[in-house]
């Protein structure tokens, strides 16, 4: 049997007892945490739509984890690509927005101002638009409402 040891206090580096076989390419996972991911979510949706749809279709085809590894790698790579571009083009707005989310329980409603700045920058630099799926026809989506009624808790 094996125990989990905290890697930061371990005497020697941890060795994976069951590594993936060598014929599966090694993937560098996305290192972005929840706040920045939430901030970038709609742009990942816009930028990586094809890869994400492909992955979901593949999963619908077969739930076996080995079946969709290739599609999964593409999804990871696309997200990394987008985050790199975001950091190059809109780092200041991005930082401001995800820090705001982090200080407001990661709720979009409380951070519309930095979000507008980020949306503007992303559209100007990368041509990506935030669209909320399922918004009713002819209605202003909530992130474009000028004076939203619900905009965070007063502190």
């Amino acid at each position: 049997m094996s125990f989990w040891h905290n890697p930061s206090s371990a005497a020697k580096p941890y060795v994976d007892p069951t590594p993936l076989p060598d014929d599966i390419p090694k993937v560098q996972e996305l290192g972005v945490t929840s706040g920045p991911l939430k901030s970038a979510a709609f742009f990942i949706g816009a930028y990586c739509k094809d890869y994400n749809d492909d992955f979901m279709l593949c999963k619908a085809e077969n739930r076996d984890p080995a079946h969709c590894l290739k599609e999964g790698r593409r999804v990871t790579r696309c997200a990394q690509d987008l985050i790199t571009k975001m950091r190059e083009n809109c780092l200041a707005e991005f930082d401001k927005h995800w820090n705001c989310l982090e200080w407001n329980n990661q709720e979009y409603g409380a951070c519309r101002k930095p979000e507008r700045a980020l949306n503007k920058c992303m559209f100007e630099k990368l041509g990506l638009v935030k669209t909320i799926p399922g918004t009713p026809e002819g209605q202003t989506p909530i992130h474009e409402v000028k004076n939203p009624i619900l905009n965070g808790v007063q502190k």
Binding site: S2, F3, W4, H5, P7, Y14, V15, D16, P17, T18, Q28, E29, L30, G31, V32, T33, S34, G35, P36, Q80, I83, T84, R87, F94, D95, W98, E102
Partner: peptide, 20 residues
Amino acid sequence: QSINTIAPESFATNSKWYTE
């Protein structure tokens, strides 16, 4: 929080599911 594109090396093995 971090906005590094690449996860640190330890991320590959530090899931508790690995060694349970």
